[in-house]
Each structure stands twice: as structure tokens, then as C-alpha cells.
Design a protein around this nucleic acid. Sequence first.
DNA 1: AATGAATGAGCTTTCATTCAT
DNA 2: CATGAATGAAAGCTCATTCAT
Lengths: 196, 196, 196, 196
Amino acid sequence: MAQNDKDKLIIDAGLSVFCKKGYASTRMADVAREAGVSYGLVYHYFGSKRALFDTIVDTWWNDLYHVLEEQKESQDDIPKKLIAIIQFFLDTYSTRPNLISIFISEVSRSSVYHTTVGLSKFKKFFSLCEDIVKEGQGKGILRSDVKPHYLTYIFLGAVEAFISILVLGKEKLDISKKKLITDGVIQVFLNGAKAK
Amino acid sequence: MAQNDKDKLIIDAGLSVFCKKGYASTRMADVAREAGVSYGLVYHYFGSKRALFDTIVDTWWNDLYHVLEEQKESQDDIPKKLIAIIQFFLDTYSTRPNLISIFISEVSRSSVYHTTVGLSKFKKFFSLCEDIVKEGQGKGILRSDVKPHYLTYIFLGAVEAFISILVLGKEKLDISKKKLITDGVIQVFLNGAKAK
Amino acid sequence: MAQNDKDKLIIDAGLSVFCKKGYASTRMADVAREAGVSYGLVYHYFGSKRALFDTIVDTWWNDLYHVLEEQKESQDDIPKKLIAIIQFFLDTYSTRPNLISIFISEVSRSSVYHTTVGLSKFKKFFSLCEDIVKEGQGKGILRSDVKPHYLTYIFLGAVEAFISILVLGKEKLDISKKKLITDGVIQVFLNGAKAK
Amino acid sequence: MAQNDKDKLIIDAGLSVFCKKGYASTRMADVAREAGVSYGLVYHYFGSKRALFDTIVDTWWNDLYHVLEEQKESQDDIPKKLIAIIQFFLDTYSTRPNLISIFISEVSRSSVYHTTVGLSKFKKFFSLCEDIVKEGQGKGILRSDVKPHYLTYIFLGAVEAFISILVLGKEKLDISKKKLITDGVIQVFLNGAKAK
DNA sequence: AATGAATGAGCTTTCATTCAT
DNA sequence: CATGAATGAAAGCTCATTCAT
């Protein structure tokens, strides 16, 4: 815990600077300064700007995969699984806003388009979600007249849109607001937007 | 009208190159070469890389605003209005795939986040959609136990997710597929994903 | 001849700086300054440090090939052909000392060892010389009890050693000294070092 | 003798890496890794990259001086002395190919080397050879109508060219080939390339 | 003696932009 | 309008060297 957390320092600095300025406008010098270390040390640990960025972003992907696999295996019913996914996003927004901000603004679209690695990570993410949706259709919980990956897009699109808005508006998120959003998304997704 | 369409040429070239490589990786030299004009002429017409990009993207925003305002004013019922919005996105995907690809990958998140201009355009866009949603709630068509802007996010998030996927997969879109998607989104949005 | 000799200027500057400092210690900034042009223009014309260097060195190789091919085809007797080769080296030393200096100190050994291109250029050079030697053996002028490529090495080694010494010692070369060297090399090569 | 041969390890590693990559492209990290020691230890023993290189090269110079001085003093006749020199080069090529490879590619021509320490070493080397040549002229064995240092260049150039070729081609050298080369060089040097 | 994290000056290269023609 | 040679600030990255342990 003592001396050798320089790499952690650098990751934190990267998180902050990438979030503030975006990947393209981030200077390695900024990261080094923010971390309070020398220029070269960033390269000593991470080798390149891209590698530093990927290291940061991978912690996000791994957590995401972990949660989705957990839900896939769990014995909970489908609505609970979907709620768990929404809550994971909201919780990450609360605890690591910079990380999710980077995901939304730098990863979720651009990188996917222009890098093969990005694309494959996304596909794995979608695929895990789709498995849950399929399970729901198989159990007769979710409607089967819409293709499972259509349902998946709709669900994830809605969740991601919410997170984007939170990020864009830098909104504070307390427990009651979290519940409001979770309920709103899950309600509309399951029962529809139509008044009853 | 005949002789001087160099600016159109440049816009088309920009559309193509920005789409293929992304804003950051696009070189003005690429654009000029693709347009078959010289370096300097791009500057003569557009002044800067950013300005060229914005000019391109603005045609999208304007069309989008136009459709939304049209729908806002129209006498159609709410479902029809929502369908029109979905169809506008799908139609643009068919007719100007490069444009919508740029919107998805370069505008909808990143630029909004890191430029003030982007943010205000987005707010206007959301606001126009929200007006339609509010109208739906006012008329008792859409549920009122969920905040109007929550409903808006869910709807737009779902639509955007679809378009993203189309773009990513470079999917062909014929009339029947268009109908399938439109129906899927509108059905799930209005009546929910739950099996009946 | 008027305005657009910038590339010539840069080549001359490169010749001078590479010669003075060696490839590794040459800074592109030095070349640009020496040429009186901007930093970027060097890249505009040559693309990279290596490319600039190769362009410079290639003029040497091409001249060398040219002379050797000329001699190969010529109707002169073998001693005259060998003398022509020696004189070409000595003349180049007089007229373009920087060029031959670069050849000796940067190309003739190091680059050959560490680049495939360098190696193949050398092989072509050797091969052209060997053809002349073989012709001499075929005509009964040169001894045949020593392998042709051995004879070639000995001849070229002697010539190159002379040039190296001139370069390293920055010696002045007048006509009489040129003759002295040419005679010495050709005499010893043909008739041997042994006193008669 | 047993425990502390780290400096030997480093020299061997340097020998190998300098040979493989050349001085400029050699990284101290490569040397340390190859030697299986740490970064800092190389500096502990040798102080700098240049110093390490010079230390390595000096073992070559010292052996070379030693042989030349031995031959200078010896009572053998001139041809035997010259043969001994040729054989020293060929033997070193057999026993320590990396060392001679470095000499050929990094020392014998490099202008950089000559500006710093190398020039005086080279002069001593030439001077020792020249003494033998002068002795040969004095005894009426070698022709006196060519300046002694010209004869020396021719002889050494021929030898060096051979070694270069061996190094370049990574040729195997057995006893019979050694004899062939030695005889070829000495024959041509003493009696000339002309057919009798 | 031995380590390797840490430094930072200095390098090559890129590319949006300018401007003389 | 049109060109493209020319600019140069600024970036990412390298690597010999230092030094606390």
C-alpha cells in the first residue's frame, strides 16, 4: 500500500484527464502532471497512450462482463436480472463517474466503429444481454413476437440513454432518484409506455 | 448551377472520409484528395476542419429538427408521430448512411460531451421529442407515472441503439425489415416487452 | 532552375550534416536549418530521416553502378577497366567528398549489416566488379588459380581502404597524388608487392 | 574467481547485442536482459554505453597490437609475418566472430568512432603494420617504388575485405578454407593478380 | 554489489493552416 | 477561384542515465 502505487496514481490521473478532455485532446504530459509523476514513468508502466486508455477501459468491461455473467447464472427471475443490470450502471455512475463517463463519450460508439477490439468487446456485451433476454422469452416472461436481439437493443438503448443523460447533465444521484429511474425503465420496458 | 459545385464535392468527400476514419483520424489532405480538389480550396470554402465537420453535421441537425417540428405540429395521433420519428432515422440510414454513421459515432456522444455547441443542439433535439411525449401524456395516451423526459430517453435510446446496430453491422435495409423494426420498437415502447 | 530547388537544397544540407555528424547524431532540425527551410518541408519532400538518407546514398549507388556497367561493356583492356574504377572513387572523393565520406562511414559496412536493402545493393556492386574480374581471367590476363570473387575482394578491399584513409585523414588530393595512388594500387594488384 | 563474474557476463552480452543490432540500435536494457542482470549494474561496472562499447572493443585492439608487436619482433621472414596477420584475423573470426563483426561494422569505418577515441588506436595499428612493411622494403623483399603506407593500405584493405565478406555471409571457416584464403591473399599481394 | 523505478531532455514525425502565385 | 509548397507548434515516444533502497 505504501510506495509502489504509482501505476494506480497514473490510472486515476488518466481517468480524470481522459474524462475531462476526451481521448484525442488528452496529452500524456497532462496525465503525468496530474499523477505527479514524470513523463517517462507513464510509458514505463503503460507503454503508450492507447495502452493506458485501454487499461482504464478494460476495468470497466471486465466489471460489466462479471455482472452480466453473474446475472445469467443466477436463479433470479428475469425482471430482477434486468433490474440488476440497470443498477450496475447506476451504481457505477455513482461510485466511478469518470469511468462511466469515458465509456459513454469515448468508448460506446467511436471506438467501436474504428477499432476491431472495441467491436468484439461490444459484441460480447450484447451477446451476454441477449442470453438473458432469450431466457426470458423461453420462460414465457418476455414477448416472443419481437426478435430477441431487437428486444436487447431496446433495453440496452434505453439504459444507455439514461446514463448518457446523467453524464451529460452531471446529475447527482441519490437513492430515491436511483429507484425512480430503475422503476421507470423497467416499468416501461416490461409494460410499455401506454397509459392503462 | 453547373460549374461551381466544388463545395458540394468537398462536403461529399468529407462525409465519406469522416465516416470511414472518424473525425480525429481524418486528414484534410484525405478530404481534398477524395474531393479531387486542392488543399487550399477546402480552406477557401470552409475555413477549418471543425467548420467543415460542423457544416456537414448541421445538415443532419436541421433535417432532424424539421421532422420533429413537423410532427409536433401535425394532427396525427401520438403513435403515428413516434413512428414518423423512427422512420426518419431509418430512412436517413437508407439514403444517407454516411451521415447517420457520423452522427452516431462522432456526434451523439463525444462531441456533445466536449463542445458547448454540441450540447445545445442535443438539448433542442431532446426538447422537441419531449414535447411530443408530453402531448401524449396530456392526452392520456402515454402513462403519466413516469416523468416525461424519462419516457423520452427510453424512446430515443431504443431508436438510437437500433440505428447504431444497423450502422455497425452495415446492414441492408429493405421495406419489410424497416417495418419489422418500426413495429418492434413501437410495440415494445407502447405495450412493453412482457408477454401477454 | 529558379524557385523550386528546395529539394536540392535539402539534399545538399543532408549531405553536409550526415557527413559531419553521422546518421545517428544527425537531427532533422539541423538539416532543415542548414538548408534554410522549415522543419516540415523536409518531411514534405522526403517523408522521413531514413528516406532522405537513402535518397542521398542512392545517387551514389547509381553512379557507381553506372560506371561499373560502362566498364563492363567497354572495349578497353582489363587494366584500363580497373584503373577506371579506382579513378571513379578518387574523382568522387575530389568532387563530392561528403558523399563518399557518407558511403565509407555510414553505408559501406554498418548499413549493410543491419539492413537487407543495404546488403542487396552491395551484392550488386560486388557482382558487377566480379564480372570484370572474370572477364580478365577468361582472357588470360588475370590469374585463374585464385577464385574470381577472392580476386574481387582483394581489389575492392584495397581501393576502399585507400578511400577510407583519405576520408578519415581528410587528405587533399591533387592530380599527381591521384596518379600516385592509382599507379600504386594497380601495380601492386597486378604485379604484386614483391620486389623484382 | 567464481562468484563475481558479472562484468564478464555483461561484456559477453554487450558483444552479442552490439553485434546483432549495431551500436546505435542497441539498448542498454537489451544488454542488461541478455546478461541477466539489472539495468543499474551495467552502469555500476561500465559507467556508460560508450564506455561499455569501448571496453569491448579494446580487448580486440589489445590482442591485435599484441600480435603485431610479436610479429614485428619475430625473426620470421616477411611473408610469414604477413601470413601471421592474416591468420590472426581469420582465427579471431573463428573463435570470436561477434568481436570481429563489431570491429568491421562499427569501428573500422565509422566516422563517429574515429572522432572520439578511435583515431589514435587506428593510427597505432597502421603504424605497426607499416613497420613490418618497411622492414620488408628495407630487406629488399617488398617493392620500394610504392610508398610503404600505400602498400600497407592495400594489404590491410584486402584482408579486411575478406573478413567483411566472411562476416556478411556468416560463412563457416574450416582449416582448408582458411588455407585457401591465406594463400590467395598472400599470393596476390606478393606476386600480383596478373597471370604468368 | 545490486536493483529497477524514476527521470526528462530530446528526438522524429504529424498535420491544420497560411499565403504567394 | 484555385493551387500546393511551405510553415512550425505540438504531440507521442525513446532511452541513457540517476539514485534511493
